[in-house]
């Protein structure tokens, strides 16, 4: 077992009790900044737009940060990173909810009727709404209690929705900027997302490969064992059969 003192410096820092509260405050800064600018009448000529754009952008940024926790942990071996993932995810929901509320209240005057007509008519709005709706069950099942109740397997299956949310959210941003023919920054976000999801695909593929090789070896091993016990002195016949069976099973 490794002792704390044998850990690398970054891991020791990540283990310190101050890190999580510090990250919490950092995540809250964009909101605090908006509030301060509002308080001091400094939201610019179009305060509605400032609030909607800022909250939407930070929801998306934090979503990419959340999605980078696991790849970063795997690449660096800093297992301590995992304990910040839930907090980042909940901040995504926090900013997405602010973004939605600002749109519903400021653009639509809290008229659900008007908002719904907008959702139905414009794919851009529909995408944003979809991302928020998909996030909601993830936020609701983020507690330890809910994780236990669902069981690790089902919880994980449900929380894989975050990949879909990522794609839908980036699409929402991209589609919005297309109206201004200005898709440079959504393209950057899309590339980062593609990298984060691509890494997962690559790892999943390699893990599947490894399992297959392992299974193959185990079968070979078993086949030899059978051969040893059989009256077939060469062992070739039985061994081949078992291996072939194994192959077709693992491919299925």
């Amino acid at each position: 077992m490794t002792t704390a003192s044998s850990l690398s410096l970054p891991r020791r820092v990540l283990r310190s009790r101050a890190v999580k509260p510090l990250l919490f405050v950092l995540c809250l800064l964009p909101f605090a900044g908006l509030f301060w600018r509002g308080w001091t009448n400094d939201l610019g000529p179009n305060p509605e737009q400032t609030v909607i754009w800022t909250t939407g952008l930070w929801a998306l940024r934090l979503l990419l940060i959340t999605l980078s926790v696991t790849p970063l942990r795997k690449l660096t071996g800093w297992a301590e990173l995992a304990r910040f993932r839930r907090m980042f995810g909940l901040f995504v929901f926090f900013y997405a909810l602010l973004h939605f509320t600002a749109w519903l209240g400021l653009v639509n005057g809290f008229s659900v009727d008007m908002a719904l007509r907008d959702v139905v008519k414009h794919p851009f709005v529909l995408a944003g709404m979809t991302a928020l709706l998909l996030m909601t069950p993830l936020a609701l099942t983020s507690t330890n209690g809910m994780t236990r109740r669902l069981g690790a397997r089902r919880w994980q299956a449900l929380h894989r929705l975050v990949y879909v949310i990522g794609v839908v959210a980036v699409f929402h941003f991209w589609w919005g900027k297309l109206a201004k023919n200005n898709t440079a920054s959504p393209t950057v976000y899309a590339l980062i997302l593609a990298l984060l999801l691509g890494l997962r695909l690559w790892w999943a593929w390699r893990a599947a490969q490894a399992r297959r090789t392992q299974l193959h070896r185990a079968q070979l091993h078993r086949a030899r064992a059978i051969d040893d016990q059989s009256n077939d002195p060469t062992g070739k016949q039985v061994g081949k059969q078992v291996v072939n069976q194994g192959k077709s099973r693992s491919l299925a």
Binding site: V51, H122, A179
Partner: peptide
């Protein structure tokens, strides 16, 4: 509204008020 959003209403710029006229 051929674009992405509804054209049903509009925000008047520079009205002033609390939070820079946000509300």
């Amino acid at each position: 509204s051929p674009q992405n959003w509804s054209q049903a209403n509009e925000r008047m710029i520079g009205q002033g008020g609390a939070f820079g006229g946000l509300f």
